[in-house]
């Protein structure tokens, strides 16, 4: 009896060890898919189409924000320069940078109405970090690879990087910020960000 229980325990343990690996990959993909589909569905609704441009952008931003982890994204964008910012500056950076990205991407998403999206495979990057492949099928049938990198925090998956055609967003910004920070102080970078966020989005 006892022996049997031990055996059962071992099986349970083995199952538990194997399971999470399967589950988490599926969950990351589901997180992206559900959210993107939610957004596309919302954009099809007549009530959305009647909204003024600003209203549309605000809604899209809200949906994007639900899956983005701007804290993780900002830390990784600045890389080692993150430590040059004091806690207050770090908070402001996260706030401004997220606003900038929201503006840029909400704008782009609004422009991409007729395209279809396909989902590809999920690759493990390391523990608790995966890459979910998606492809935007443009109207002239071109496939644009758009990969999301997600990490798991407290059981939920959040996006910390977007890789378009092989170009990582956070890496690209890191190079640019590094260039600025070689000659300038974090405060100057923040000032540049503030001005950039205030700019009106191009129509």
């Amino acid at each position: 009896m006892k022996r049997k229980l031990v055996g059962l325990n071992i099986i349970c343990l083995a199952v538990l060890l194997v399971l999470p690996l399967q589950v988490y990959a599926a969950d990351a993909k589901a997180t992206v898919e559900v959210q993107i589909n939610k957004m596309l569905a919302r954009m099809q609704e007549p009530s959305f189409k009647e909204l003024p441009r600003d209203g549309k952008l605000a809604e899209i931003r809200k949906i994007i924000n639900e899956i983005f982890d701007y804290q993780a994204l900002s830390e990784r964008t600045l890389g080692r320069d993150w430590k040059k910012f004091n806690p207050q500056q770090q908070t402001e950076f996260v706030d401004l940078f997220s606003k900038l990205l929201e503006n840029v991407y909400a704008d782009r998403i609004l422009a991409y109405t007729h395209e279809k999206i396909e989902y590809g495979k999920v690759t493990d990057l390391r523990e608790n970090q995966v890459e979910v492949e998606s492809y935007i099928i443009t109207t002239d049938n071109k496939k644009v690879p758009l990969f999301y990198r997600l990490m798991q925090k407290d059981g939920t998956w959040r996006v910390y990087d977007v890789v378009i055609e092989g170009v990582s967003m956070i890496k690209n910004y890191r190079g640019q910020f590094r260039q600025i920070l070689t000659n300038k102080a974090p405060e100057d970078l923040l000032q540049t960000l503030r001005e950039k966020v205030k700019e009106k989005p191009a129509s």
Binding site: L100, V104, G175, Q176, F177, Q179, I180, T192, E199
Partner: peptide, 11 residues
């Protein structure tokens, strides 16, 4: 519009 140092970004 999204770039800070477009030269570096493009490169």
């Amino acid at each position: 519009k999204a770039a800070f140092e477009p030269y570096i970004g493009v490169r």
